[in-house]
Amino acid sequence: MAETLLAVESLSAGYDEALVLHEVGFALAEGETLALLGRNGMGKSTLLATIMGHTRRHAGAIRFAGRDIARIAPHLRARMGLAWVAQEREIFSSLTVTENLTVAARPGAWTVERVYAFFPRLRERRASMGNQLSGGEQQMLAIGRALTTNPRLILLDEPLEGLAPVIAEQIAQAIRRMNREEKLTTILVEQHAQIALGLADQAICLERGRIAYAGAAAALANDLATLDRLVGVRKEGARAISR
């Protein structure tokens, strides 16, 4: 059993006085991928933002690499090895693609060259400004930008959302390679539950800010009743991507 990298303990958080998360707790071992599921507005993005330090924490602990980071500023969390790929991608629009990758890069295995090898499309667009990219390119850049900080844990917030199926497939493949070949510990928020479960080892489902399910990803993938209740899998019309 690999060592625990992230342990969230009875975490309650939200924005200002409003609580969104209620006593959330889970642990993630180094090298594992966690699918974070739930319907819209159940607190998935808030949980990622809380781990990164962008919300108001009311109670609980966030232990990262053995240290409680709950009171640490976001930029210090990033330097400890946390990386966040936000739902809106949030590419720096007045920076070129290369500058987006280098502006916060830290030394390590993931260099700009390696990100370009990982996403060849970005190399072709390297001189373009951030606001000239397509949605898929923005998503590649958001992931690549997170990778050049050489994180130990990457938080991916709906990386396939709003992308054409063929582009979504490419991104999913990239995530799979990050997890399987690079052993990068990942938390993946995704509306397409079957895709996320196909990529993940563990899964948790949030319902109104509380953990409603926690277990192995493969078990949840086969438990259609639970999946339908917590995620609404039938409406979605699952698009499975082969392993």
Binding site: M52, H54, A73, P74, H75, A78, R79, A83, W84, A86, E90, F92, S93, S94, L95, E99, N100, T102, V103, A104, R106, G130, R145, A146, T149
Partner: peptide, 24 residues
């Protein structure tokens, strides 16, 4: 310069700049 890029990144999106480890 890299500092210039940090300044522009911070003007563009302070929260994301922070999240990448830039001491805003």
């Amino acid at each position: 310069t890299r500092f210039g890029a940090m300044v522009r990144a911070t003007v563009d999106n302070r929260r994301m700049a922070q999240s990448l480890g830039i001491d805003v």
